[in-house]
Computed example of a mutant assay.
Amino acid sequence: MTKRLAGKNCLITGAAQGMGAAVAEHYAAQGANVCVADLNIDGCNEVVERIEANGGRAIAAKLDVSNRSEVASAVQATVEAFGSLNLILNNAGINKPLMFLDITEENWNQIMKVNALGVLICMQEAAKQMIAQGKENGPYKIINVGSILSREVFDDVVPYSCSKHAVLAMIKGGAKALAEHNITVNGYGPGVVRTELWEQLDKDLVAIGKFEKEGESMDSLAENMILMKRYSYPEDILGTATFLAASPDSDYMTGQLLMIDGGMVIQ
C-alpha cells in the first residue's frame, strides 16, 4: 500500500495526547517523519515510543507554543533529525469556560496566548524555515486546527471562540502572505471530539452550572445540534488531516478551513 506521506518531515504541536497524538501516529503510519511537540514531554515520549514500535520515525520536543525561542528550537530539531521541514500542524490549544460576565483578563490572556499568539509564532517560524529551504523544494504545508467556534460563538466560551476566529483569520492571511513561497495554509475545524480536552471541558461546564452532570454536555450537543446525532472521536478527523497534508492531494488549495463537525455548524 502506498504511504501518502512518505518522506514528509512534520512538526505537530499539542501532540502528547488526544487529537494531536492520533494525527502524529497516523501521519507516521503514512510514512511521515514526525516531531511530536508539547509541554507534556512525558506524553510526547510515549507517542514517539508507539510510533517507533510500529516502524515509524519520530522525535519528541518539549514546547510552549507561545515562546518563540522554543518554537524555533523545535523547528530546528525537526530539521536536524530529518533534514528539512515540509509541514507543520498547529494543534496545541487550551480552553477554560466561563460565562460572559465572569470572563477575567487572566482567562482571556491565557487562552489567547496559546490559541492565537502561539499559532502565529509557529506559523512564522515554520515559514521562515520553509522559505530558507527554497520554494522549488515545496510545496510546503501549514495546517491550523480551528473549531466549530471559528464560525460560531457560544456564550460560555467567548475567549476560546475569539481565539479560534483568530486562527481562521491567520489561515486566510497566511495563505495570502506565503503563496509566493510555495506554502499553502489551510485548516480543519472539529466539533465535539471525545478527547481529554473535551472531558475536562465537560467537567468545567458542570462547575460553572451550564450542565448538571458530567457527560451531559456531549450528549446534549449530539442530540440537539449535531446532524449526525453523535459526537466524534480523533479517528473521525484523520482523513481530513491527511488530505490537507498529502501532496498532491491538496496542493491547489489554500486559505480554507474544512469543517469536520458532523453538521454542527453549516455556513
Rank of each mutant, 00 (worst) to 15 (best):
G7C: 08
G7F: 06
G7M: 09
C10N: 04
C10D: 01
Q17R: 15
M19Q: 15
A21V: 07
A28S: 06
A32S: 08
V34Y: 03
V34M: 01
V34L: 02
C35H: 08
D38S: 11
D38E: 05
N40T: 06
N45L: 10
N45S: 07
I51S: 02
E52W: 07
A53Q: 13
N54S: 14
G55Y: 05
A58C: 04
L63V: 09
S66L: 07
N67S: 12
E70W: 01
V71Q: 00
A74G: 02
V75P: 00
V75A: 00
T78Y: 03
E80W: 02
A81V: 04
L85A: 02
L85M: 03
L87V: 00
L89Q: 13
P97M: 05
L101Y: 12
D102S: 11
I103K: 13
T104F: 10
E105R: 12
N107R: 12
N107K: 13
W108P: 06
Q110K: 15
V114R: 11
L117N: 15
G118T: 03
Q124T: 04
Q124G: 07
E125R: 01
A126Y: 00
A126M: 01
I131W: 00
Q133H: 09
E136L: 01
Y140V: 01
K141C: 05
N144T: 04
L149S: 15
S150F: 08
D156L: 09
D156A: 13
V157Y: 13
Y160P: 00
S161A: 14
K164F: 05
K164D: 04
L168W: 14
I171P: 11
I171A: 14
I171Q: 11
A177W: 02
A179Y: 00
H181E: 00
I183E: 00
I183M: 01
T184P: 05
V185N: 02
Y188S: 04
Y188W: 12
G189F: 10
G189N: 09
G191F: 10
G191V: 03
V192G: 13
T195H: 08
L197Q: 14
L197I: 12
Q200Y: 07
L205Q: 14
A207I: 09
I208P: 05
K210L: 13
E216I: 07
D219H: 14
D219L: 12
L221D: 12
A222H: 09
I226V: 11
M228I: 11
R230T: 09
S232W: 11
Y233M: 13
P234W: 06
E235A: 14
I237K: 13
L238T: 11
T240N: 12
T242Q: 09
A245N: 09
A246V: 04
S247N: 12
D251Q: 02
Y252L: 09
G255W: 05
L257P: 03
L257H: 13
D261M: 06
M264P: 04
V265I: 11
I266L: 14
